[in-house]
Amino acid sequence: MAGRKTLLLVGATSDIGRAVASRYAREGWAIVLTARDPSAARRDTDDLSVRTGEPVAVLPLDVLALDTLAAFVDALPVLPDTVVCVVGELGDQNRAEADPEHAARVMATNYLGPSLLLGILADRFAARGHGTIVGVSSVAGDRGRGSNYVYGSAKAGFTAFLSGLRNRLARGPVRVVTVKPGFVRTRMTQALSLPPLLTAEPAEVGDAIYAAAERGRADVVYVRPVWRLVMAIIRAIPEPIFKRLRL
């Protein structure tokens, strides 16, 4: 991988993860993918390597195994130039209300594990003197809603973590970017009826992430800009009115 920039992609088997890997590979980056099940990721890497001619490596990583995260970073074959974390689990809100273990998994997958991993990488980047961190959060974290507040609260925590990390590192050479895709047509949302205007395709998200991380200056990116307006309106609704809505 010498002589070319390296991307570390956390959450390689997701639809968004595949799109991000493909976008960076087309730009000539070396790709290091992580997945809980490396064998599942390798099916995609073989195809990606053939189509792009770029090297792709796969490493096992479970972001819920918190005591392994520092060792994972220390064992990387090369410290990446950019890390993109797309790990997420929508979960089931009704189940989460009745099953604390399910709720805890959703919270840990969307907030705790990714935040701790990116915090470790941020320290390594700062010590080296450069690096870009991209965390994929969600518009669901902009305001808690009864239909998905367990997932939304975890994404709100992740958004706040990225904001604080960005503030802490603002005077140095490390960038921290928060990406909020809104609705995305993926396997995770295939059972939902999604409005076309607000729904992005995975490739669209991959392009937006690459542009924000490698070409842009924005700190917080809504993949479809209309979401910025939508969520500004939702955040502005007074609480006495908001709590009577079914959102």
Rank of each mutant, 00 (worst) to 15 (best):
M1G: 08
A2T: 15
G3Q: 05
R4S: 13
K5S: 11
T6S: 09
G11I: 06
G11N: 07
G11H: 00
T13P: 09
S14H: 03
R18S: 01
Y24W: 15
G28H: 03
G28C: 00
A30S: 15
V32D: 03
T34C: 06
A35K: 07
A35H: 00
P38T: 11
S39I: 14
A40D: 12
D44C: 09
T45G: 09
T45H: 01
T45V: 01
D46T: 15
D47I: 15
D47E: 15
V50M: 11
R51I: 12
V56A: 02
A57H: 04
V58T: 04
L59N: 04
P60D: 09
L61F: 04
V63R: 07
L64D: 10
L66P: 04
L66G: 01
D67H: 12
D67I: 08
T68Q: 13
L69V: 10
A70N: 09
A71Q: 12
F72I: 08
A75R: 10
P77Y: 06
D81G: 09
V84Y: 08
V84F: 00
C85E: 04
V86E: 07
V87T: 03
E89K: 13
D92P: 05
R95S: 08
P100F: 04
E101W: 11
A103R: 07
A104S: 13
A104I: 02
R105F: 10
R105I: 11
V106Y: 01
M107F: 13
M107G: 08
A108Q: 09
N110Q: 09
S115R: 04
L117P: 03
L117N: 01
L118D: 07
G119S: 05
G119Y: 01
I120P: 01
L121V: 09
L121C: 03
F125A: 02
A126P: 08
R128N: 03
G131S: 08
T132M: 07
I133R: 03
G135R: 01
V136T: 01
V136E: 00
S137C: 09
S138F: 01
A140S: 12
G141P: 04
R145S: 02
G146W: 12
S147F: 12
S147P: 06
Y149A: 11
Y149Q: 11
V150E: 02
S153I: 08
K155L: 05
K155A: 05
T159P: 06
A160H: 09
A160N: 13
F161A: 01
L165K: 07
N167A: 13
N167S: 14
R168A: 12
P173T: 13
R175Y: 09
V176T: 00
V176H: 03
T178L: 06
T178K: 04
V179L: 01
K180P: 03
P181C: 03
P181G: 02
V184C: 10
T186P: 06
T186E: 08
T186S: 09
T189G: 12
T189L: 10
L194W: 11
P195V: 12
A200I: 05
P202G: 05
A203Y: 07
A208D: 10
I209W: 06
Y210T: 02
R215S: 12
G216V: 05
A218T: 13
D219W: 14
V221E: 01
R224G: 08
W227I: 03
L229R: 14
V230S: 07
I233R: 11
I233V: 15
I234Q: 10
E239T: 15
I241W: 10
F242V: 09
R246W: 14
L247N: 08
